[in-house]
Computed example of a mutant assay.
Amino acid sequence: MCASLQEYLQGRSPHEQLRVAGDAIKNMAEVCFQRAELMIQGWENRYNSEGPVLDEDFLAGMIQQTMFLDVSDLCRQPKSRKSRQGFTGNPVESIVREVSKDAVLGFVDELESGDSVDLSMFC
């Protein structure tokens, strides 16, 4: 290849020789680059510990992107419910009543002091 390039360059102007030689070197560098890329890709595919590399388009026909499911036949209108009746259990007398502020503060003081708490003040 170099011999045929030298034959072609004979008789040309120095400017033309440099331009053609530069183009030739550029083309040879691109060929070397492409060969190196193929070699590296082949090596990576052969020694890839994660498994084979698949192109994005390889699985395109096997993957479902969207789905529509009509569930209207599975749904039914709710039945009307009977009106709720009030509480039917036995009435219980409430123990809720008002407690003075002093009684609550005394209870809090007993809790903070760690003494036994007397709940009788609330009953």
Rank of each mutant, 00 (worst) to 15 (best):
C2Y: 15
C2H: 14
C2Q: 12
A3M: 08
A3V: 11
A3T: 10
S4H: 14
L5N: 02
L5P: 00
Q6F: 10
Q6N: 10
E7Q: 13
Y8A: 04
Q10I: 07
Q10N: 08
Q10A: 14
Q10C: 06
Q10M: 06
G11M: 07
R12P: 01
S13P: 00
S13D: 03
P14L: 09
P14I: 01
Q17W: 00
Q17R: 10
L18P: 00
R19W: 07
A21Y: 04
A21V: 00
G22W: 00
G22R: 11
G22Y: 02
D23F: 06
I25S: 08
K26S: 12
K26L: 10
N27W: 13
N27D: 13
N27V: 14
M28D: 07
M28E: 14
M28L: 15
E30C: 03
C32L: 15
C32K: 15
F33Q: 06
Q34C: 06
Q34W: 01
R35C: 12
E37V: 15
L38W: 12
M39Y: 14
M39L: 14
I40D: 03
I40P: 00
Q41G: 01
Q41C: 01
Q41N: 07
G42K: 06
G42N: 08
W43T: 09
W43N: 08
E44C: 12
E44R: 14
N45A: 13
R46F: 09
Y47T: 09
N48C: 05
N48E: 12
N48W: 00
N48S: 14
N48G: 03
N48V: 03
N48P: 04
N48Q: 02
S49H: 12
E50A: 14
G51L: 04
P52W: 02
P52E: 02
L54N: 05
D55R: 08
D57M: 04
F58K: 08
F58E: 05
A60T: 06
G61H: 09
G61A: 11
G61P: 03
G61W: 08
M62T: 12
I63T: 05
I63M: 12
Q65G: 06
M67A: 09
M67D: 13
F68N: 10
L69T: 09
L69P: 00
D70P: 01
V71I: 05
S72T: 15
C75T: 12
R76D: 00
R76S: 11
Q77N: 09
K79G: 08
S80R: 13
S80D: 09
S80H: 02
R81A: 13
R81C: 10
R81P: 07
K82E: 08
K82D: 12
K82P: 05
S83W: 03
S83P: 11
S83Q: 11
Q85L: 12
Q85H: 05
Q85T: 13
Q85P: 04
Q85K: 14
G86F: 04
G86C: 01
G86Y: 08
T88W: 00
T88G: 05
T88Q: 06
G89M: 00
N90F: 05
V92K: 07
E93V: 09
E93T: 03
V96S: 12
V96R: 09
V96H: 15
V96L: 15
E98C: 15
V99T: 09
V99A: 12
S100K: 15
S100N: 13
V104S: 02
L105K: 05
L105C: 06
L105E: 15
G106P: 10
F107C: 10
D109P: 04
E112G: 04
S113Y: 09
D115N: 14
S116A: 15
S116L: 06
D118E: 08
L119V: 10
S120M: 02
